[in-house]
Amino acid sequence: MKTRRGFLKQLSIGTLGMGMLPTLAWTNTNEQQFGVQLYSFRKAMAKDPLMTLQQIAAIGIKEIESARSKKGLYYGLSPEEMKTACVDLGMTLKSGHVALDDNFQDTMEQAVASGQEYVICSSMPSRGQTVDNYKKVAEAFNKAGEACKKVGLKFGYHNHEYEFESENGQVLYDVLMDNTDPDLVHMELDLGWVIVGGKDPLDYFKKYPGRFPLWHLKDMNMKKRESTEFGKGGLDIKTLMRHQEASGVKHIFIEQEEYASTPIESMKHNMAYLRNL
Results as ranks from 00 to 15, higher is better:
residue 216 H to T: 01
residue 44 A to L: 11
residue 115 G to A: 05
residue 274 L to G: 00
residue 186 H to V: 02
residue 235 L to Q: 01
residue 126 S to F: 14
residue 59 I to M: 02
residue 10 Q to H: 11
residue 136 K to F: 10
residue 71 K to L: 13
residue 38 L to R: 01
residue 88 D to M: 03
residue 127 R to A: 12
residue 98 V to P: 06
residue 42 R to S: 12
residue 57 A to I: 00
residue 170 Q to D: 15
residue 240 L to G: 01
residue 211 R to M: 08
residue 231 G to Y: 04
residue 132 D to E: 09
residue 64 I to P: 00
residue 267 M to H: 07
residue 171 V to W: 05
residue 73 L to P: 06
residue 152 G to H: 10
residue 195 I to P: 00
residue 259 Y to C: 10
residue 159 N to M: 06
residue 154 K to F: 09
residue 120 I to C: 12
residue 264 I to M: 08
residue 92 T to R: 09
residue 193 W to N: 11
residue 8 L to M: 14
residue 182 P to Y: 10
residue 135 K to T: 07
residue 155 F to T: 15
residue 219 D to G: 02
residue 89 L to E: 00
residue 169 G to I: 07
residue 47 K to D: 15
residue 256 Q to D: 02
residue 253 F to V: 06
residue 209 P to S: 00
residue 174 D to E: 09
residue 266 S to D: 02
residue 42 R to H: 12
residue 38 L to D: 02
residue 221 N to I: 07
residue 238 K to L: 10
residue 255 E to Y: 04
residue 73 L to G: 01
residue 139 E to D: 15
residue 184 L to K: 15
residue 142 N to Y: 09
residue 20 M to A: 09
residue 259 Y to H: 11
residue 202 L to T: 08
residue 248 G to Y: 08
residue 165 E to A: 14
residue 211 R to L: 06
residue 138 A to C: 11
residue 149 K to M: 10
residue 275 R to Y: 12
residue 14 G to L: 04
residue 160 H to P: 09
residue 139 E to P: 07
residue 222 M to V: 03
residue 18 M to W: 14
residue 195 I to M: 01
residue 112 V to N: 07
residue 127 R to W: 15
residue 256 Q to I: 05
residue 270 N to G: 05
residue 230 F to G: 04
residue 122 S to R: 13
residue 43 K to H: 13
residue 146 E to G: 14
residue 8 L to F: 07
residue 239 T to Y: 04
residue 18 M to R: 12
residue 98 V to W: 08
residue 54 Q to V: 01
residue 166 S to V: 11
residue 134 Y to R: 13
residue 192 G to W: 01
residue 40 S to T: 09
residue 273 Y to L: 00
residue 23 T to Q: 13
residue 68 R to F: 14
residue 134 Y to G: 12
residue 55 Q to K: 07
residue 108 M to I: 05
residue 143 K to F: 13
residue 155 F to V: 13
residue 198 G to F: 04
residue 184 L to Q: 08
residue 195 I to F: 00
residue 82 M to Y: 06
residue 174 D to L: 06
residue 231 G to F: 04
residue 259 Y to K: 06
residue 199 K to T: 05
residue 70 K to S: 13
residue 154 K to G: 12
residue 116 Q to M: 09
residue 12 S to Q: 11
residue 240 L to Y: 00
residue 164 F to D: 10
residue 33 Q to W: 01
residue 57 A to G: 02
residue 165 E to L: 14
residue 48 D to N: 08
residue 107 T to S: 03
residue 189 L to N: 06
residue 103 N to T: 06
residue 252 I to F: 08
residue 194 V to H: 08
residue 145 G to D: 08
residue 9 K to I: 12
residue 86 C to Q: 03
residue 209 P to L: 06
residue 162 Y to W: 15
residue 223 K to M: 11
residue 227 S to N: 07
residue 182 P to I: 13
residue 195 I to V: 00
residue 59 I to Q: 00
residue 138 A to Q: 07
residue 89 L to I: 03
residue 70 K to D: 13
residue 235 L to M: 02
residue 32 Q to M: 15
residue 247 S to C: 10
residue 195 I to K: 01
residue 99 A to Q: 11
residue 76 G to Q: 03
residue 257 E to K: 10
residue 104 F to N: 09
residue 158 H to L: 09
residue 273 Y to H: 05
residue 219 D to K: 00
